[in-house]
Structures are given as structure tokens and as C-alpha cells.
Design a protein around this nucleic acid. Structure first.
Length: 405
RNA sequence: GGGGAGGUGCCAGAGUGGCCAAAUGGGGCGGGCUGUAAACCCGCUGGCGUUGCCUACGAUGGUUCAAAUCCAUCCCUCCCCA
């Protein structure tokens, strides 16, 4: 393939998930340059739980990797210790280095579901490398290049000023450090969520001050979480995580509201435009089938065709045909005669569910044994060799009588 | 530096001596209807040996037969003025 075609192919594949590019001209020019690009992928190493929203950025980086460009996975250990103000107001607790390293490891594990980790196109760095040893004089000289008004122009600082909240100095300085990372890495391009735009713009600013050509910034589209409300966030548990099992990915995809289907196809799958268009035409006549397709496509993207197919079959069998799945946890009990409550208690970790909670579940009709609903905690049941205990819509246990030894 | 308001359950927010495990709304969970969609309806939502008991309304101590509610000290947050 000629280079011209490469460029076209890259730009084309980026279009669907790109929000803005700073600047498109620059991107085209740089892609024409035969030298490989340095892609800055900076992360704040709090406990990682990457989701398919983050993966949108990763897939774009992956694309560039395939053409020989190099991702530098920058662990912001220094900056994490400071605390990024991006995530809204509250001050963040400080992190210990060992915790950071543990998180970083997990991060790389999740990232490698998408990115190539061949050292030719993937390298891990830490910003403590240059920040820990930076002399105060140098740091002050960085400060002298930028003005207060530029720093507080950031929308979230403006909000705080308007509401009379404080801005701490380390928060003001954060973008400077993150920006300087781009200088230290000689970053050519960075692909980020819009929430990071301000910081990365400061990166461009500093790179120019240091005589480098400013990094290209691509911001990506953000779509609502599976609850159809806000963006995917760990704390809302409304995301499809890279760390989720294939089955959970499938199930979570099946839970999205219908109106998000097309958006999800566009942003989270690699189906081509023609295929998506075709799905769009069928969506009103058979939305469920489209959703199956979506779930399967997403799982396939991360776990391959075979697993995706299996999960689909599992799902159909379990929820459409309402058959008890085969691979459910087994709980062995000692006495064949006990109450419904006793039985349930043995299936759950007491730290996760309290007795009261279990009693409530029983009372509310969530529990059935071999298909018979049990609504009274104190009912005595006798289990033969084994029984299937179902709790709610998607939890099963195989209860087995322990043979005496 | 001066003045004012406030800290209640996952969140928001009522309650200002007993009827308070604490109104109401959101969220979550369970049930019904369904397509693990949407909409809708019903119930639940601190713990425990559950007609009762224990722990809880920023922290500690006090007053009282009785405190989320009153008093004292402390910690924290917010607002206004300069």
C-alpha cells in the first residue's frame, strides 16, 4: 500500500470516533512524514478500571502502531502523587509509590487487550524520571513562561471561582507538569478525552517554548454509559469494562437502552459503515437482534469470534430459553434438612450480604429452589442429592449434599 | 481581619426534647409485564438470635426519666464584607 493510501485509511478510520483535532492540517502533514510518531499516552495511576470508552482512544493508537508509530505509556507517578483537579472539585488523597506501581501493572494488563506491546511500538515511562530531579530553578523558569490568567481560564477553575471555592496551588501547577511531559517525551500526538484537553493544550504551549513542534491533539467522542445517562464511570457501575469477563461484557451490552444502539455501533465496534448502515435499517423492526449483534461484536473485538459466539449462545439459552446454565457455582451443604434461609446463607459471603438482606430477598420472592418459589425464610426444605437455587434473575447456585467421610 | 450559615442514611434533603431507624425525592435491589430495552405498577432499602434488642444524625463530654434535637469544647465546610 502506498503511503497516500495509508494516510487516507488512518484518517478514515479515525473519523467515527473523533470529536476534534488540533489541528487536522498538522495531522495530515505529520502522517506524510516518514519518521514514526511518538504517541503520548499519559495516565494517572489510580486504581484502573478501563472501559470501552477509554478503549476508543486505545484503538486509535493501535491503528497508528500498526503503521509503525510508537506509544509511550506514561505513568504519571509524580502527578498522581499531586492529584489532578480534572475530576471535579474534591482534593484527592495522596498515593503511595507502591500502590502506584501496582495500579500501573494492572493498567498495562488491561491496555494490552488493545495495544501492541512489542517494544518497537510500545514503551513505558514515568514522569518522576524528570520531575523528581528537576531543580527548583528550572521549575520556576517553567512557571515564568506562563501566566496566571491562562491557567485559570480552565473551565473548572472558572467554576470554582464563581462558586467561591478554593483553588490550591498544586492544582494550578498540575497542567504545567502534565504539559511539560509532552516536552520531555517529544510527543508528536496524543489521543485523549475532552476532559484532558486543557492540560494537553498547555503541552502544546510548552513544546513551542522549547522549540519543538507542538503535539497533535485528538479528542474523542464520549457516549453515555449503559444506563443511558451519564458517561461511563466506575463509580456509577454503568460501563463495559475491559476487565469484565466476556460474559459480563455481553450482558452489559444487552442492557443498554435501544436508543443508544447506533451510537454504540459507531463508536465501539469496528464494523464498517456499510454494515452499520444496514443494521440501522433493521433496527426498528428487530431491535433485539441488533442488540445481540452489538453485544457479540463488542465481545468479539476483545476476545475473538469463538468466545463471542459462545457467549451469545449462553445468553440465549439462559435468558431467552430460561434454562439453568451449566457453569454455576457449586455449594456443598452438610444437612439435607434446613431452612430456606440457612441454605441461602451458605451460598453468600457474610461480608457481602447480611442476614437481613437475605431474608428480604426470600420474602420478596427472589429465591426459588428447583423452580419453586420460596417466600418464607423459615420453611424447612429437604434437598435430595442436589438442587438448583436461584436468586434474582441472574444468580444460580448448585447445592450439593456433602457425602459423609 | 470582621460578620453570618451549617455539618443527618449511597446522594439530595426534612426533622429542632419522647409518636424517629428518622418524612420526601433520586439511586439501588426484588417482584409483575417484557426483549437482562423503554414505559408502567407493587414492595424493599442499618444490623441482629426480628411481636423485641443493639448501633446510628461531624467528634468528645454534659444536662434530662428521655437527645438528631438543649449546653460546652473541639474538628470541618460554606457564604458575605474588607
Amino acid at each position: 500500500m502506498s503511503m497516500k493510501n495509508n494516510i487516507k485509511e488512518i484518517l478514515n478510520s479515525f473519523k467515527r470516533t473523533t470529536d476534534e483535532v488540533f489541528t487536522l492540517e498538522q495531522l495530515k502533514t505529520r502522517l506524510n512524514d516518514p519518521r514514526p510518531m511518538i504517541i503520548k499516552y499519559g495516565v494517572d495511576v489510580t486504581a484502573p478500571q478501563l472501559h470501552i470508552g477509554h478503549a476508543v482512544n486505545l484503538w486509535m493508537m493501535r491503528k497508528l502502531q500498526e503503521y509503525g508509530h510508537k506509544v509511550i505509556f506514561l505513568i504519571g507517578d509524580f502527578t498522581t502523587r499531586i492529584g489532578d483537579p480534572t475530576g471535579e472539585s474534591q482534593l484527592r488523597p495522596l498515593f503511595k509509590q507502591e500502590e502506584i506501581e501496582k495500579n500501573a501493572k494492572e493498567f498495562i494488563k488491561q491496555v494490552s487487550m488493545v495495544l501492541l506491546t512489542d517494544p518497537a511500538v510500545f514503551e513505558v515511562r514515568r514522569n518522576s524520571e524528570w520531575m523528581d530531579s528537576m531543580p527548583t530553578g528550572k521549575f520556576v523558569s517553567l512557571l515564568s513562561m506562563i501566566t496566571h490568567s491562562r491557567l485559570i481560564s480552565r473551565d473548572m477553575f472558572q467554576r470554582r471561582i464563581q462558586t467561591g471555592s478554593e483553588i490550591y496551588m498544586h492544582e494550578m501547577i498540575y497542567p504545567i507538569i502534565q504539559g511539560y511531559d509532552s516536552v520531555a517525551l517529544k510527543s508528536d500526538i496524543t489521543i485523549i478525552g475532552t476532559d484532558q484537553l486543557f492540560n494537553e493544550m498547555i503541552g502544546r504551549f510548552y513544546q513551542e517554548k522549547f522549540g519543538q513542534s507542538p503535539q497533535i491533539i485528538i479528542t474523542t467522542k464520549i457516549t453515555p454509559g449503559i444506563d443511558g445517562k451519564e458517561k461511563q464511570r466506575k463509580s456509577l457501575d454503568n460501563y463495559i469494562g475491559l476487565g469484565h469477563s466476556p460474559r459480563d461484557k455481553f450482558g452489559r451490552a444487552m442492557r443498554i437502552p435501544d436508543r443508544l444502539l447506533m451510537e454504540y455501533f459507531e463508536v465501539y465496534t469496528d464494523l464498517d459503515e456499510a454494515q452499520i448502515k444496514e443494521i440501522g435499517e433493521n433496527i426498528s423492526t428487530n431491535p433485539m437482534e441488533c442488540k445481540y449483534r452489538l453485544a457479540e461484536t463488542i465481545v468479539k473485538r476483545y476476545h475473538g469470534k469463538k468466545i463471542a459466539q459462545e457467549k451469545r449462545n449462553w445468553f440465549v439459552r439462559t435468558f431467552s430459553q430460561k434454562k439453568v446454565p451449566k457453569d454455576i457455582p457449586t455449594v456443598s451443604i452438610k444437612n439435607s434438612n434446613c431452612t430456606v434461609f440457612d441454605l441461602l446463607r451458605q451460598c453468600y459471603d457474610p461480608f457481602k450480604k447480611s442476614n437481613s438482606e437475605l431474608r428480604r430477598l426470600i420474602q420478596q420472592g427472589a429465591v426459588s429452589i428447583d423452580g419453586n418459589k420460596e417466600c418464607d425464610s423459615n420453611t424447612n426444605v429437604s434437598i435430595g442429592n442436589q438442587a438448583i437455587l436461584k436468586v434474582g434473575k441472574r444468580t444460580w447456585f448448585r447445592v450439593v449434599l456433602q457425602t459423609k467421610e
